[in-house]
Simulated assay, not measured.
Amino acid sequence: MVLSIYAFLVVLSFSALYPFWNGLVVSFNEGLDTSKGGVTFWPRIFTLQNYEIVFEDKSLIQSFMISVYRTVIGTIAAIFVTSIIAYGMTRSNLMGRNYYMLFFVFTMYFGGGLIPTYLLIQSIGLYDKFLVFIIPGLVSVWNMIIFRTFFKSLPNGLEESAQIDGCSNWGIFFRIILPLSGPVIATLALFTAVAHWNDWFVPSIYIKNPDLLPIQTVLRRLLNANIVELSGLDSGSVARIQAMQTVTSRSLTNATMMVVTIPIMLIYPFVQKYFVKGVLVGSLKE
């Protein structure tokens, strides 16, 4: 019985990891050789040409940096604003607290729709601006609820002692609450960062300036059309591809996918230990 369970887990793990591994192998294999088929676990003709093209393409590097800026700024801003709102919702002396909570929860189930949201983004001047990545996602109601529950689980004596010492609400929040909230902050920051990093839909709707497109939106265009035509490669890169005669759309696409995927994957090992302590305590303990 135990062996069958281990065998099932091995098969399940293999089915989940193999697509990523094969994409990595294809990205290091010569493009024309890959088109012949049979490239599975190891590169048959190892090459770095695919990555050379990716890193020489100025548009892809620009898109990659836009994704980095969006992820860093968006995550910090969202965690900061959401945690402040959550802390305020824990105050028993907050007038209308239940109505505020009902209002927040309502937005989790009902939205204005794509067209009204588009018109709103235009009317407030965020269309085709970098801030369209940041401001609309400042508050996550689900994350706010987790923060709120976690804050309520902290001992009341800590805040009472701080108030006796003359500490203000802001001082309590920054000096006591936030330092004790490391696990939940790390966990929700990771989820927020992944959401920002993987998002391609928002830029495809609200951004028309190619210099503001994140790497995920560019990658999706590469996957849906000819990579040389839509990636915006400069003339030097196009000439280099034509000179190589070994690079294909599939090999370049896989190389781009690895460049997009690996950075966010490298963050997981550093925050994995916070998952159970952060998410479970913040979501289950009331």
Rank of each mutant, 00 (worst) to 15 (best):
N156A: 14
T107L: 10
R97D: 01
I66Q: 13
T90V: 09
A86Y: 07
P214N: 03
L24V: 09
P183I: 00
T71F: 06
G125M: 03
I79A: 13
K285E: 03
L223M: 15
Y69D: 12
A239F: 00
S235C: 09
N209M: 06
L9I: 10
L24W: 13
A225P: 02
K58N: 14
K36H: 04
K208G: 02
L284H: 02
R44M: 05
G236Y: 12
L48M: 12
G137I: 02
T253V: 10
Y118S: 03
G111W: 07
A186V: 06
T192C: 10
L188E: 04
P43S: 08
I264Q: 11
T246H: 11
I124V: 15
H196M: 03
L114C: 04
F103C: 03
S153P: 08
A78F: 05
Y118R: 05
Y69I: 14
M95Q: 10
I172Y: 09
Y18I: 01
N224W: 02
L266F: 11
I61P: 01
G278A: 08
V72Q: 04
N224E: 15
G96M: 01
P116I: 06
S123K: 13
Y69M: 12
A195F: 01
F106V: 05
V218S: 07
A186C: 14
M258Y: 05
F110R: 07
F46C: 04
V25F: 00
R250M: 14
R220G: 12
F64P: 04
P269W: 05
I66N: 12
E56P: 08
G157M: 00
A239R: 14
N22L: 10
Y127Q: 10
I172E: 10
